[in-house]
Write a protein that binds this DNA or RNA. Structure first.
Lengths: 230, 230
DNA sequence: GCCGGGCGTCAGGATCCCGTCAAGACCACC
DNA sequence: GGTGGTCTTGACGGGATCCTGACGCCCGGC
C-alpha cells in the first residue's frame, strides 16, 4: 500500500495505524516520488492513498499518471469537500474520496471495502494512439491491431516514455530506470533502442511522429502528434 | 439499477435523475420488496442503492440478505453519519456510504466509480479455447472433449496463466504464486512445467499457440490465438 | 570552409535465455 | 520393501537478445 501525503505528521499517523492494521506501507511526500514508488517493480502497491494537495504536482495529475497502468484501487484524501472536486477526482479514476479531517476507523473500513472489491477493470490500462496501442497492464503492444513483440529492454524503455505522455524524459532519467544508475553516461544505448522502437512502432521510422528526440536533453512521447507534413 | 428508499419524494427524485443519467432504474420502498426485486431474474440489477432507514427491515439486514449472492456494488445511503455506522455498513459488504443530505452530482460520480470497477465478475469459472477447456471451479481440463490429468504443480501454473488471459504474467509472479517467495530465481522450474503443459494441451507443442513465451519477462496465455501459419 | 558534438544506422560477436532430456530424490500407497 | 507418480536438479544446443564500435549525417560555432 502506498500512502502519498505532504504532511509529515499525518503521514506518520497513517503509517503507524495502517501497519497496525496489517498493511504493508510505503510512503511518499510528493507526486513525483509517488509515481516513481508506484512504478518501482519491487513495490507495486495493491492500493494507493492519495492526498490531492501536494507541493509539486496537482493530485489529479498524479492520478492521471497512475491510471493508465495502475489497476488497483486509489482512495483520495482531500481537505476540499466541494462536490465538484469530488466528482472530478472520482471521474478521473479514484475509487473513493475522503475529506479531511476524517475518522481513522472510517478510512480503514473504506480501504477494506476498496481492497475487497479487487482491481479495476484491465481495459482501462491502455495508452492509445492513432497508430498503435500500449497496454501497460498486459504488457502488450499492438500496431494496427497486430500484436508486436518487444524485448525486455525495449519494453522497459517504452513504458517509461508512455507513462509520461507529452513530458520530456531526460536521458539520465531513462538510462537510470532502464539500465540502472551505473549507466547514466551510455547515451548510445538510447539511440540504439529508440531506433528499434521506432522501427517496430512508427509508421515511418525515419520521420518519427510519436517518439521524438530532444537533442541533448532526452526523448518525448506524444500521444496525439500533429499530422505528418505531406 | 435498484433504488431502495422509503421516502417517496427522494425515490422519485432519484428515479428521475438516474434515468436522465442513462441508468435503468427499478425502485423499492422497503426491505422485503427490495430483496424480492433484486432476486427477480428479470431485473437482476447491476448496482443497488440502499437506504439504511427502512420501515420493515434494518438496512444491514437487507445488505446481509443481498450479499451472499449479489456480486455487484451496493451504495448505502443513510441519514446517520456516525463513524461506527459507516464502518458497520462497509464491513457488512457495502461498497460506498453516502450520508444524507447528499449532493446529487457526487452521488452520480460515486455510482459511476462503483460501476467502473466492473461487477467483480467472479470470473467465468470456465475458460474455453478452440482446442481445450479449463474449468477453474472443477479443476478439470479437457482437450477436444477428453479429460486430461494434470499434476498439482501443473494445475497451479496453468490456472495462474488462464486467470489472466492475454496478460503477460512475469516469471517472478508465477514462481511466487506457485512455489512461494523463496523460489523467485528458479526460472528453470517454469521451463520444465511449461513444456509439460504444452505437451498435454497444445496441438503442436513445438509451436505453441496458446501458451506463449516472452523471453526475459514471462509467459502469456492467449484464449483466441491467430491461426497457425502454413 | 573546417571542426566537433550529438544523433541515427548497421553489423558482428559475447552473453543470456529458453526448450529439451534424463537421472536422481522424494513421497504415498500398496 | 516395492512401485508408480511427482518434483527437483543439472547439462546441453540453438536461438534470441544485448552490448559495442564504426560510420555517415546534420547542425552550430569558429
Amino acid at each position: 500500500m502506498l500512502v502519498v501525503d505532504d504532511d509529515p505528521q499525518l503521514r506518520r499517523a497513517l503509517r503507524i495505524t495502517l501497519r497496525a492494521a496489517g498493511f504493508d506501507v510505503v510512503t511518499a511526500e510528493d507526486g513525483r516520488t509517488a509515481l516513481a514508488e508506484a512504478a518501482a517493480a519491487a513495490a507495486h502497491p495493491d492500493l494507493v492513498v492519495l492526498d490531492l494537495g501536494l507541493p509539486d504536482l496537482d493530485g489529479t495529475e498524479v492520478l492521471a499518471g497512475l491510471r493508465p497502468w495502475f489497476t488497483g484501487p486509489v482512495v483520495v484524501l482531500s481537505a476540499r469537500g466541494d462536490s465538484s472536486d469530488k466528482v472530478g477526482a472520482l471521474d478521473a479514476g479514484a475509487d473513493d474520496y475522503v475529506t479531511k479531517p476524517f475518522d481513522m476507523a472510517e478510512l480503514l473500513a473504506r480501504l477494506r471495502a476498496a481492497l475487497r472489491r479487487g482491481t479495476a477493470d484491465p481495459g482501462q490500462a491502455q495508452v492509445v494512439t492513432d497508430h498503435f496501442t500500449v497496454d501497460l497492464a498486459a504488457k502488450q503492444v499492438t500496431v494496427d491491431g497486430v500484436p508486436v513483440r518487444l524485448t525486455p529492454t525495449e519494453w522497459a524503455l517504452l513504458s517509461e516514455l508512455v507513462r509520461n505522455p507529452g513530458r520530456l524524459v531526460g536521458q539520465r532519467e531513462l538510462l537510470q530506470s532502464v539500465w540502472g544508475p551505473a549507466y547514466e553516461r551510455e547515451t548510445n544505448y538510447l539511440r540504439v533502442y529508440l531506433a528499434q522502437l521506432r522501427r517496430k512502432l512508427e509508421p515511418d521510422p525515419a520521420h518519427p511522429r510519436y517518439l521524438h528526440t530532444e537533442p541533448g536533453m532526452g526523448y518525448r512521447f506524444l500521444k496525439d502528434p500533429p499530422p505528418p507534413v505531406g
